[in-house]
Design a protein around this nucleic acid. Structure first.
Lengths: 345, 345
DNA sequence: CTGAAAGCGCTAACAA
DNA sequence: TTGTTAGCGCTTTCAG
């Protein structure tokens, strides 16, 4: 019960190894007749290419750059950062090297500068947590023109016109996430009326604005007893979000729902718990971190919407590898919106 | 910028390839001094073993058997079945072969017979959706004694005594899942009182009984306005579960919560929608299938708890491979409890 | 206990 | 257009 190899195929088809290889990899330089013959013996023998041998023979290496905002106090970005480094260790054995570069959060110019400085010779692909700005978009198109595969991660850029600016966007469906938050806050407040608020980091980020869109759709259309306040921006900063929450609590005695669209959850949790009103307000946030997890367990948060950092890195690397190997037609797996509540954290 | 290979390590350490290989794979027959020397040069040079070459050189193949209940009308089991076959195609290229065997659902004896008939020579590992019964347990221990790696999938067996009966259990935390269901039904019924019911397939299955345990804990301890009815068993059968639901609806005008612990969701959905009371009752079920998904979108179901079939197969295969390669110390990744609601399906 | 040499199955120069 | 031939980096006999 031996394995069927290219040798067997070559012998059976009466051709050489090289011909089999050409057919197998769809390379040109094979006559139609030969190609047919090889193909038919391939599936007559039930041959399947050995992935390990193939990878060994092509001594190809890949270098991918991950460009992320500086984590600062942002646990999610911190986790993303760490996960890239962790994956890098594992991927070494598979001939893939990951590098990380960071830019100050929200700073389109800084991000663009980094993108513009990337050496296309040294880099096969780039995954970027994008800031949606013209210069960033231009830099990404430039990179693609120089043969670097580009995907956005977590937050996308606008795709105006014909050229998409990036190959894929690896992220959750943020409008849907906002809708989930809206439904949760609406339904957990069933038979109750009052105001609800949403706090974003920065509404120029596409992920934040998309979440807000979905949220306001659901609250506005399906939960009429709830009144949505105008969105606030806390720049993903703990003290800033805490101040916003304190102001909301002071101003609105009837606040019964709060959606934390971005980061800065530590500030939100602190301000809520200081007020003692955390159990009267349904709170939904994003990204499971030690802080949001603890808040869920204490009942300060009611749900946390999450995107698996591990999945995102895996899918991103896979997409970059496919692109670098010229495998068009690769469709990256969608990233699930995970809902965490007290009992499944 | 060449890759560092075993040759480099051997040369630098002044030993032969074979010696490097021995220390690399922790094989015996190397003096302590040699071992030290090789180890130090390995991390001096920052050598990492090339996964592809290693796999190619060891022409090892693995055959794993998946033993599942017959899907019949059970969409989840059907998906599991299909996923094993799909993964089998992909894994062929990685020298892993997956086989599927089925037994009539719930039938411990039939399952035991299959397990007892497995050829330990032909099989490196077994993943089984278990029925918890003494003879099944004995058969699994027997298999392990004959050198076959055994893991349970989705539903576990009791682990009495010292010998665990299986190496790992790849499944969600079913008690936690039941708790999530309880919290959802309790909280979505806030400020309301009434009865809630749970319908299992068969409470002798550990996954079903664990879910029921978690559910009754939360309802009993945290949602006092809700009264939990005794559990019903529908044998994962559509018509049977439909009949149960109809009886519940007739008997209890104040039914406001329903937890579908097992399968047979099609029957539950049909009976609910026939009654027209589906929007007055908070319904939580398990496993996202075309039917439960549609029910979520229509509002007949309020939430679906899900275990990713793809993840489970992947983790199971990885665990079996590790076991077959003698890699004790491998810890399989936990399976997440996914919560799906209308907007994130 | 250590070393030399022959593959694993596929790919890619280089010839023909 | 087709064939020949030498590896890719590691493992594994089989001698020493």
């Amino acid at each position: 019960m031996k394995r069927i190899t290219v040798h067997d195929v070559a012998a059976q088809a009466g051709v050489s190894l090289a011909t089999v290889d050409r057919v197998l990899n769809g390379r040109r330089g094979v006559s139609e007749a030969m190609s047919q013959r090889v193909h038919s013996t391939i599936d007559r023998l039930g041959f399947t290419r050995d992935h390990f041998a193939a990878s060994l023979a092509t001594s190809r290496r890949h270098r991918f750059a991950f460009i992320l905002p500086q984590p600062d106090g942002n646990s999610f970005m911190h986790a993303l950062h760490d996960m890239v480094l962790a994956q890098n260790k594992l991927l070494m054995t598979r001939r893939i090297q990951l590098g990380v570069m960071t830019y100050p959060a929200f700073q389109a110019t800084a991000l663009a500068c980094i993108l513009e400085s990337i050496d296309a010779q040294q880099t096969d692909g780039v995954a970027v947590v994008a800031v949606d700005a013209p210069r960033v978009r231009a830099a990404l198109e430039q990179l693609q023109a120089r043969g670097v595969a580009v995907i956005t991660l977590v937050s996308d850029i606008a795709s105006a016109g014909a050229t998409p600016g990036r190959l894929h966007c690896i992220a959750i469906d943020n409008v849907a996430a906002g809708r989930v938050a809206g439904s949760l806050i609406g339904r957990l407040n069933a038979r109750r009326a009052g105001r609800v608020a949403a706090i974003a980091g920065n509404l120029t980020l596409r992920d934040h604005s998309e979440r807000h869109l979905g949220f306001s759709q659901v609250i506005g259309q399906e939960h009429r007893p709830l009144v949505l306040l105008p969105p606030a921006e806390g720049l993903d900063d703990g003290p800033a979000t805490a101040a916003i929450v304190r102001r909301l609590l002071d101003t609105h005695a009837d606040l019964i729902g709060l959606y934390s669209i971005g980061a800065g959850n530590r500030g939100i949790i602190a301000a809520l718990e200081q007020s003692g009103r955390q159990h009267d307000i349904v709170v939904v946030g994003h990204e499971l971190t030690p802080h949001t997890r603890a808040a869920l367990l204490r009942g300060a948060f009611d749900a946390v919407l999450h995107q698996s950092v591990a999945d995102e890195i895996t899918v991103a690397v896979e997409a970059l590898r496919a692109a670098a190997d010229g495998d068009t037609g690769h469709v990256p797996a969608p990233i699930r919106i995970d809902i965490f509540m007290r009992d499944n954290v």
